[in-house]
Design a protein around this nucleic acid. Structure first.
Lengths: 180, 180
DNA sequence: ACCTGAACACCGTTCAAGT
DNA sequence: ACCTGAACACCGTTCAAGT
């Protein structure tokens, strides 16, 4: 992880990311030009550091994911598996409500970039589900990828819709479908 | 439903819709300009008939919905409620796989236009669910709107993803969550 | 009334020219 | 090496000018 970038290049990259974090949190659709302008760099500079707009979203997304991923193992030691799963899903939901770019990234089901980017989330989900299978609380037919698709839908809803009671009901329904 | 449009205006409107149906089925993101060009009308003509691009999608969507809505009551007379629900969901899924604009419209959870446009679908879903409640096969806590959100997610997946086995598993999981 | 199509304000992205 | 910013090809949408 040594610095292979020239000092000014590194500064620009950091500035772009810093601006992007707040801009995308405020509005998921924030344009590249608005970000470069706020960061005080030319458009070309942006594309020197990120091949595409999606790559920028991906980078911001990756940083936010780490927070949530570390939460999984912590919850498992404290709660029963099903409760840990529920708590983790609620945490993600809460996080997505504030960080709009996360919700956008979660919804990128089609993008090839994101399917690999989702991997840490899938691993955490798998961890939680497997714990439930071992205690016999969850049935064994559930694939983490399947459940991730449904959760993705719920998490995005939480961002757009004022009604967060619905997202909670939906989570309960999914968990009930998972219980043995 | 009398013709209040001048003859040429009516022709143009019909042509736009005809082109849009095939164009949007081929690619959900088809541009307004590409549609007007293929329909042989100016851009201004388009906006005389449809206030916005979304309104066009909405119109095409509405026509396709009717086919699916009439299916609900038919299935109920033939099958047990849960089977009818399952069959209807699969039908929608199959339809969305071909008509991409339908998948796009289904995903428009946020758009105010669409939340009212979804109404017939919601009514059909309510019909199917209520039948299941009366026979005691489905539990009473399920709101049609809630389930619609999850199904929307599954239906869109079917369009993008080659893996349709997943969409079937997800449907089963949701239905299992509904069963009493 | 209704139509056309150039034009506008955006978007993501590229590339010649600078240091 | 890295940067700038005008320019490109798009997008949805508007509007003056025509019939």
């Amino acid at each position: 992880m040594a610095n292979i970038l020239r000092a000014d290049a590194q500064t620009n990259r950091d500035r772009i990311l810093a601006v992007a974090r707040t801009a995308l949190a405020a509005e998921a659709g924030a344009s590249v030009n608005s970000i470069t302008k706020a960061a005080g760099v030319g458009a070309g500079t942006f594309y020197r550091h990120f091949p595409t707009r999606e790559a920028l979203v991906f980078e911001v997304y990756k940083q936010q994911i780490e927070t949530l991923v570390t939460l999984g193992p912590a919850l498992i030691t404290e709660l029963r598996p099903v409760e840990a799963l529920r708590a983790w899903c609620l945490q993600v939901s809460e996080y997505a409500r504030v960080k709009h770019s996360l919700a956008e990234a979660l919804g990128g089901l089609a993008g090839q970039d994101f399917s690999s980017a989702h991997q840490p989330m899938l691993d955490t989900l798998r961890l939680l589900i497997n714990a439930g299978k071992q205690t016999g609380e969850l049935n064994a037919s559930a694939e983490p990828e399947d459940i991730f698709v449904l959760l993705t839908c719920i998490w995005r809803l939480r961002t757009n819709d004022a009604d967060q009671a619905r997202s909670q009901r939906l989570l309960e329904l999914v968990i009930r479908g998972l219980e043995v």
